[in-house]
Write a protein that binds this DNA or RNA. Structure first.
Lengths: 351, 351
DNA sequence: CTGAAAGCGCTTACAG
DNA sequence: CTGAAAGCGCTTACAG
């Protein structure tokens, strides 16, 4: 199987020109604005076709620093069956973006250091083969992002990322705005005591949701009654729900659908009627909505669009001379459902 | 941002040795089994540490000839939302295989020629960037496969592919065996008139299912009653189902779950009680099983395993000197369900 | 418009 | 055990 692939030199020989000409035919927009005569170009093109020549991206990258290769790196497995619905839209958007710009994608699957993935291996930035990379994954190690930024490697994170001492590019979803919108929706339904149950992880997306919640509560003059419970779904307890009810809570925001499932279970156990006595909403796309239940109030995260935008930002980053981080936040779409109903009983308005 | 990184030459200079020595210290298991004296090695190591030297992976790949890049090409979009459940397991397996063998994956997303994807663009094999490629897609153009084989490019198809004049490597699922197993299952339930409704496309996987069906029918001495209806799901008509019933058919094999949904609709329309009067089974993984219905009798296609196997085969192919196609057929797992029940009424056995 | 040549940063026979 | 040198396949000033 070791049939030697034709090189630029083979093409040049066949076309009766130098390799410089072949390179210029291949890179018309290259530096120097050099021109090749139409006849010569035609000869080169024919030689390329006859030999089936394809430029070697490795050599290209070494010589020019460009490879027309965009990396996709995930700190977790890229195709985890369990998170299929989470990753797939991102990848679809990334694929569309790459295809639209005639880039190929490089999936860094070899970057495994004893189990967990890491960008640097023996100090080597494994992403370097690609001109730049999109970074996926819920919790990227901040120190690796910082190193990447420090060495000037172009990358874009999917999801807002704050890194000390570095301006990181990202495409984020507007969790804060979408969460605030849900609070307003509940307010309009008459709810005045609205709680937030968020995950134990205080990552950026969770911080944004909390910020949106607090902002909207304050805007509605409900700031004093704001309650944030930070719990893993399985940590949420019956006493949590009892406590909320005792405090007069009539609506609760649940960060994930795991939280929602857990909440429904507990509500059933403590005899709380949902949503009649307590409305609830999920702060994102319910990936595994309860099939038997009516639709939950939630919002749509534009993952596909985010994937596409990440590629556009990455290409802009690669092409730009001076470094300026691209930080884009895309709106989420509010999706009203049956899990939020008008607040029960007499309203207790402020004095 | 362009602070020049130290190169091997910088290290060599500082350590007072040649670059060859530095390379050997870095690649102890490289070819040639050359040794470096401990003192020299220590000096090199110190220089590396002092300079913060990190080898350039691009240069490494170019010099060594080992790109460790495996291509993934799909004739359709790789991440089609509609076919998520179909492709995802393949990709998961491919990712696992690549990771296990320390290869990166190259997704050919730039290979678009006016809408549809094609391996050859302007006569050029675009896959050449990768050491070899896995080919996905339901109906790969046979002429492109033939050309690929002819030029000696290493590739493995996911799914059996027969190409005139070429021995193509593939990892297939044993549709024939699994279909035969379902026929036997029905036979054991007392069914004697069993029909097959397959798609209009006579591609390899469909041919295999039909072959398994016919083989099992003959083995059960039911060959004379074998009936194969070739229909697109939406072409299947009420008269088809009435005809089957009139012929005494008590069980029907449906190639896809689309066929199954259509069959159930028609059965309802013509007043056929399913599965009481007519059992049915799906010849593969029901991707969109009717949620309200009980589980259908079917079999599991080992897509994840197939993905992994395709990478192993591909690497073997790349490493092999002489060409020999890898053709592996993996067993499917029979999955009994509630859609197959004992045959109704008096059995009509042969004379 | 075209070519000869240097260079990208490594690896690897080939000589000492 | 070590070094000088060729080469991997390109791009890109620099001269014509």
């Amino acid at each position: 199987m070791k049939s030697r692939r034709p090189t630029q030199a083979d093409v040049a020989r066949r076309a009766g020109v130098s390799t410089a000409i072949v390179s210029r035919v291949l890179n018309p927009e290259g530096k120097g604005t050099v021109r090749v005569s139409p006849e010569t170009e035609a000869r080169v093109l024919r030689a390329i076709a006859e030999l089936g020549y394809v430029p070697n991206p490795i050599a290209r990258k070494l010589a020019s620093g460009r490879a027309r290769l965009l990396g996709v790196f995930s700190f977790e497995s890229i195709f985890p069956l369990a998170q299929r619905d989470f990753y797939f839209p991102f990848l679809l958007g990334i694929e569309q973006g790459a295809e639209a710009n005639a880039f190929d994608l490089l999936l860094f699957t070899s970057a495994t250091a004893q189990g967990s993935r890491s960008i640097f291996r023996d100090g080597v930035n494994t992403l370097q083969l690609a001109d730049g990379s999109v970074l996926l994954g819920r919790k990227p190690p901040k120190d690796e992002l910082a190193r990447l930024a420090e060495m000037g490697y172009p990358f874009v994170c999917l999801g807002r990322r704050e890194v000390d001492g570095a301006e990181v590019s990202y495409i984020a979803a507007d969790y804060a705005g979408a969460t605030a919108e849900i609070v307003r929706h509940l307010y309009d339904l008459g709810h005045r005591t609205i709680a937030l149950v968020a995950g134990a992880e205080r990552d950026e997306s969770s911080i944004d949701r909390e910020a949106g919640y607090l902002r909207a509560m304050e805007a509605a003059d409900l700031g004093r009654s704001a309650v944030v419970l930070r719990r893993r779904p399985d940590e949420t307890s019956e006493s949590d729900v009892r406590g909320l009810r005792a405090a007069g809570t009539t609506a609760v925001l649940l960060e994930t659908d795991d939280h929602a499932h857990r909440f429904l279970d507990i509500a059933g156990a403590v005899g709380l009627s949902v949503p009649a006595e307590m409305s609830f909403a999920v702060l994102g796309d319910p990936l595994n909505p309860a099939t038997e239940a009516p639709q939950w109030t939630s919002f749509h995260i534009p993952r596909e669009e985010m994937g596409r935008a990440s590629i556009e930002a990455l290409i802009a980053l690669i092409d730009s001379e001076a470094y300026a981080p691209y930080q884009t936040t895309l709106p989420c779409q509010f999706r009203p459902g049956d899990s939020t109903v008008p607040a029960p009983g007499p309203r207790e308005e402020g004095p």
